[in-house]
């Protein structure tokens, strides 16, 4: 008896024992229960082991998948710094290889072509016809094109070193950087002719190379800035050769027009004019000899 006895009239039948109709399917249900218990007991160990293995495999797959999914962002860019850096460097190299000829070629070629053209125009006004100027421009292009990669490599070498002890007063007046370094290397920097071993104050070639001699003057001209010391000398030699070549061609034409008796005097005049024009450029002493060599080489 409980607090719900007031509902015995209604709920009493619900508490009665099972009727025969309710227990009619006893044998069938009990057979099902026994079979289910037997199958579940027989498969309990197998099922549990299989469940354990499946759980481990699933956990491993999910964990590996999660790490793999998060890997590219976590490891490559945060923990493993070497991977992306290598890729960036490769990309930079590719960019340099691709972009250098596309971007820098016009910047280098334009002044190289223009400068001889201006010089040749000056020569033309005096003597030469336009055809000679065109021919000389072609010659200049053929000569100057191989120097393009050298101009790119000299960017770092031209940076002045503020720690150098080189005395800027020893810079050759009006000369470029290469002249100064060459003079120091030859022992002519002090102008007294003494050997560097005899003078303890003689500057070293390294200091001269790191000095800013000639750089301020040539900074306005792109062609001089982008050349190395030796290459600047070669370039100057080439220009001198071109100047002498341009002068010789019209002089030969004028010689054909003049009388044959004046051949000896004309030849002496041409020999004397070439050095005069080159002496007109005080930064290139002694160049006729080198110009002759350069002409023979080319």
């Amino acid at each position: 008896m409980n607090e719900f006895d007031d509902f015995d009239d209604l709920l009493g039948p619900l508490r009665t024992p099972a009727t025969p109709a309710e227990l009619a399917a006893e044998n069938d249900v009990v057979d099902l229960m026994a079979a289910a218990h037997h199958s579940s007991k027989g498969n309990t160990m197998f099922t549990s082991r299989r469940a354990r293995v499946a759980t481990l495999i699933a956990a491993g797959v999910i964990g590996f998948g999660g790490v793999a999914a998060a890997g590219p962002r976590v490891f490559d860019y945060q923990l493993l710094d070497e991977g992306p850096i290598v890729e960036v460097e490769v990309q930079d190299e590719v960019d340099n290889v691709v972009e250098e000829p596309a971007v820098e070629e016009p910047a280098v070629e334009e002044p190289v072509i223009e400068e001889p053209a201006v010089e040749e125009v000056v020569v033309q006004e005096a003597v030469v016809e336009e055809q000679n100027v065109v021919e000389e421009q072609n010659v200049v292009e053929e000569v100057e094109v191989p120097e393009e990669p050298a101009a790119v490599d000299t960017d770092e070498a031209l940076d002045p070193d503020p720690t150098t002890d080189f005395d800027e007063t020893l810079c050759i007046p009006g000369g470029n950087h290469g002249k100064t370094v060459s003079a120091v290397a030859r022992g002519l920097a002090l102008g007294d002719g003494r050997d560097r071993d005899e003078n303890p104050d003689y500057p070293s070639v390294t200091d001269a190379a790191h000095s800013s001699c000639g750089k301020t003057v040539t900074a306005d001209v792109e062609t001089d800035v982008e050349t190395d010391d030796d290459e600047a000398d070669d370039e100057a030699d080439d220009k001198a050769d071109l100047a002498t070549a341009v002068e010789e061609v019209p002089q030969q034409e004028t010689e054909d027009l003049e009388e044959t008796d004046l051949e000896e005097t004309d030849s002496e005049e041409t020999d004397s004019e070439a050095p005069q024009k080159q002496h007109g450029r005080p930064d290139k002493p002694g160049k006729p000899e080198q110009a002759g060599k350069g002409r023979s080489d080319k």
């Binding site: 099972a18 009727t19 309710e22 399917a25 006893e26 249900v29 099902l32 289910a36 199958s39 579940s40």
Partner: peptide, 30 residues
């Protein structure tokens, strides 16, 4: 069985005998 079957009938289960059999099979398995 009887309380289970009456409980299922009171819940208006469409086929209380079948549901009761499923319940007993689940009991036997576990």
């Amino acid at each position: 069985q009887a309380p289970l079957l009456r409980y299922l009938r009171a819940r208006r289960t469409q086929s209380p005998d079948d549901v009761a059999s499923q319940v007993w099979v689940d009991i036997a398995r576990s």
